[in-house]
Design a protein around this nucleic acid. Structure first.
Length: 619
DNA sequence: CTAATCATGAGGTTAAGG
DNA sequence: CCTTAACCTCATGATTAG
């Protein structure tokens, strides 16, 4: 029914390709939304005081348009600049775009050759790609690598075949721009930011200009805030001070963003669109493969890095993140393809995409399979098959009680009004059926399993802390799928810098993949989470070293240098920075990337950039 | 229009320990 | 009876996307 294509990278590319098909997805959410077109409208029955917020009008219940099948299975990855044509690309164009070819190139080739001979189109595209490709894009991740055992002694030499090795010897010996700028007296943050904005190869003068401009802006803003802060900013608490400086340092861009927001018809970077279905570069169990992409030069390691955050941010946040993380397009994935709960997240990483494999056994995708005990009580009118996103808070026992009362009152089938309200509350609070008239939030143990952790992973922490830690955590199967490509690269184990570790999702994922953890530096503010990770580390008899760091500010260039020289470098820098100020559920302080917590993203970038530069100089 | 969304803080309650 | 810490409940909408 569906084709598979195989890329064998041999400096060029050879590919099997036969035919073109439409991939059909059934969106379970749409299925869920199908409504029984009840004849009984609302027999104004219940004397229940729902007492909660959404007292929505039930009057305008309209039968939802049930369109469960969408034939567009394409995920458009923006490689190269698209031709910014306002029209949607054709299916054929999309098809080739999903294989990683730029839209402009695909359109051009199809225009030249017509739509009929797909083989010829593909050949031509491949030819163009090979011609266009700079030498550093060749990858030799092939069987010879996987099978050879001798490469273990010289890990880094072999890994060079993954990375771009073309420029490792010229531009980063003595004249690392970061070092130069720091030598000139600029702070590492300023230097990193300037390099990020202007490019690694930008002339020093340009970098200095950028910093000067930023500082002018900063001073201007500081002046404007002088009435408030005056010269006392150094007396502010550390956090506030940091936030203040960051806000102003970046205020230029912020203002531009705001401006752009108000006048939405401008030219520049079109908003990153979320793929639908949200399958990133592919998920298991879906006949969908994107096996090739071109990483920007600056993105190429070592180390590998992996950054995560919520997909549904305020506008512009992911563009901003992307602009720091070397312009790599985020991979947006919904974990509903990995487990029984939705979790829409964006991942920016420089990992290879070839030969991913999922953790076994594949976790259940439906509520019934994941929580078999609920099936017995599940009413036919609750059409949910998967859970919503696991959050940090749960529904109250009072809500459970109110729902129980409502169901007990009506000894027959509840009214449509009651049904809809109950389903709405169940979706909102992610509750499941634990009795004929009883819904309840998930237990921490159940969440552990759904999120891919060993059961009782968070045991010992208080209930609230368990919910909080799990609600903030990676979905292990999702992350492990992306990280699986590391297994054959590091048969002797890896060194990991884990930022914002939380309950240790990255560590658990790597361990479940069977990748030995040699040295792990884990940065996590919460002592509860550090204890959970430490407990897991001991229970799983890890042989490596685990270093805890409580504050990301402690991770200085000096520290990084020490670690790197002590165990030879980090192979992976992984972390999801705080989402508090990006998350949709936040009513109070959804301030965007500059928010008090979410601005820690800049520390992720700072540290990643530091590691990259140190590693370059050492190699 | 429907729908989902790694949230936060105030204020009250519970439980343990002196 | 008091303190303290942990826990529980509720109220608090907007921003996205489709």
């Amino acid at each position: 029914m569906y084709y598979e294509n195989y890329f064998n990278d041999i400096c060029g590319v050879v590919l099997d390709f036969d035919g073109f098909i439409n991939i059909v997805y059934v969106d379970w959410m749409d299925l869920c939304n199908e409504m029984v077109d009840g004849d009984s409208s609302h027999e104004g029955s219940d004397n229940i005081d729902w007492n909660t917020d959404d007292e929505q009008e039930i009057a305008n219940i309209s039968p939802s348009s049930s369109v469960p099948i969408s034939t567009n299975g394409a995920v458009i990855s923006e490689f190269g600049e698209s031709s910014s044509s306002s029209k949607c690309p054709s299916k054929l164009v999309l098809h080739f775009m999903t294989m990683g070819f730029p839209e402009a190139m695909v359109t051009k080739v199809i225009a030249e050759l017509g739509e009929d001979n797909t083989d010829a189109i593909l050949d031509t595209l491949l030819t163009y790609s090979v011609v266009d490709e700079t030498p550093n894009q060749k990858r030799e991740l092939n069987d010879t690598y996987l099978k050879s055992e001798s490469h273990v002694e010289n890990k880094f030499a072999d890994l060079d075949s993954i990375w771009s090795d073309e420029d490792s010897d010229d531009s980063f010996e003595k004249d690392d721009p970061l070092v130069c700028l720091i030598d000139m007296g600029y702070s590492p943050e300023e230097a990193s930011a300037a390099i990020s904005r202007c490019g690694k190869n930008a002339p020093l003068s340009e970098l200095v200009d950028f910093i000067s401009a930023a500082n002018v802006s900063k001073e201007y803003d500081a002046e404007m805030n002088a009435n408030v802060l005056g010269s006392f900013s150094h007396l502010l608490p550390k956090d506030k001070k940091r936030k203040f400086q960051k806000d102003n340092f970046w205020s230029k861009n912020k203002k531009l963003d705001r401006k752009h927001e108000s006048k939405s018809k401008d030219e520049d970077h079109e908003a990153l669109h979320l793929p639908n279905p949200m399958v990133g570069f592919g998920v298991p169990r879906e006949p969908f493969h994107v096996v090739r992409r071109t990483l920007p030069e600056a993105a190429i390691g070592p180390p590998f890095f992996y950054y995560e955050n919520v997909a549904l941010t305020p506008k512009g946040a992911w563009n901003r993140i992307k602009s720091f993380l070397y312009e790599i397009d985020p991979e947006f994935v919904d974990s509903k393809f990995f487990c029984a709960a939705a979790r829409k997240r964006g991942y920016i990483h420089n990992l290879p995409l070839e030969n991913r494999f999922p953790l076994q056994p594949l976790p259940p995708l439906t509520i019934f399979e994941a929580l078999p005990g609920t099936k017995k009580w599940w009413p036919s009118w609750d059409k949910r098959e998967q859970l919503n996103c696991i959050l940090t808070c749960i529904g109250s026992a009072q809500l459970t009680d109110r729902i129980r009362l409502a169901l007990e009152n009506s000894n027959t089938e509840p009214s449509l009004h009651v049904k809809n309200h109950i389903i709405g509350q169940c979706k909102k609070w992610n509750m499941v059926w634990t009795g004929k008239t009883r819904v309840a939030p998930l237990e921490p143990d159940e969440i552990e399993l759904i999120m891919g952790y060993p059961i009782y992973h968070t045991r010992g922490a208080s209930r609230v802390e368990r919910y909080k830690g799990l609600g903030n955590a990676f979905q292990v199967d999702t992350v492990a799928y992306h990280l699986s490509v590391l297994k054959n690269l590091y048969p002797d184990g890896i060194n990991v810098l884990s930022l914002f570790s939380g309950i240790g999702g990255a560590e658990v994922a790597l361990h479940k993949l069977g990748i030995p953890l040699n040295n792990v530096v884990s940065v996590e503010k919460s002592m509860v989470c550090r204890n959970i990770l430490q407990g897991w580390w001991e229970q799983t008899n890890q042989k490596g070293n685990l270093v805890h760091v409580s504050d990301v500010q402690e991770v200085t260039l000096n520290k990084l240098n020490q670690w790197i020289s002590s165990f030879g470098g980090f192979d992976l820098v992984i972390g999801g920075s705080p989402c508090n100020n990006l998350a949709g559920g936040n009513r109070r302080t959804r301030d965007g990337l500059e928010g008090e917590h979410s601005s820690l993203f800049f520390d992720y970038f700072r540290i990643l950039d530091g590691v990259k530069n140190i590693m370059k100089n050492k190699s």
